[in-house]
């Protein structure tokens, strides 16, 4: 693990809600971030099946998207979500880690554009996909 990844991991895992969700930063750099959310019974949305709630999936996708913006070579000082649209393709398989892979593919002076995909162990069939626009605050 690089020094930058280690620092970013500490930073993201210290965010109170990220810590509450048990998020783990796995990869970051060059406008890309991968964040994992281990299966946790507290996050179940459907008690009958044990499927994780879509809201928790949104949260890991939003976190990965923000991390991808922060790691873009343009070097924003901070970012916040402007909008995020998520399509839910299928329920995540109970018991499996959900992984959000975000890519910040374009940055202007004030806006960053991100696409994000969430998968479980079967990475050929996404659980959810999203597109977002994020604010970009330049370093002073």
């Amino acid at each position: 693990m690089t020094e930058i990844t280690r620092i970013a991991r500490q930073f993201i895992e210290a965010l109170p809600h990220a810590a509450a969700l048990g998020l783990r930063l796995e990869e970051i750099g060059d406008g890309r971030a991968v964040i994992a959310m281990p299966y946790d019974p507290r996050l179940i949305g459907d008690p009958a099946s044990g499927v994780i709630h879509g809201g928790a999936v949104s949260a890991v996708m939003d976190t990965a998207s923000g991390a991808a913006v922060m790691s873009h070579p343009a070097g924003p000082a901070s970012t916040a979500t402007l909008d995020l649209r998520i399509d839910y393709m299928r329920p995540a398989t109970p018991g499996q880690t959900i992984r959000a892979r975000a890519h910040c593919h374009h940055v202007t002076r004030s806006v960053a554009f991100v696409s994000v995909v969430a998968t479980d162990d079967d990475e050929t069939r996404p659980v959810a996909m999203g597109h977002g626009a994020f604010t970009v605050d330049r370093p002073r």
């Binding site: 109170p16 969700l21 709630h53 809201g55 949104s58 949260a59 939003d62 923000g66 916040a80 995020l84």
Partner: peptide, 11 residues
């Protein structure tokens, strides 16, 4: 957290 807001709206 933006994810909390999204979850709140979804529920």
């Amino acid at each position: 957290h933006g994810g909390v807001t999204a979850a709140f709206l979804e529920v």
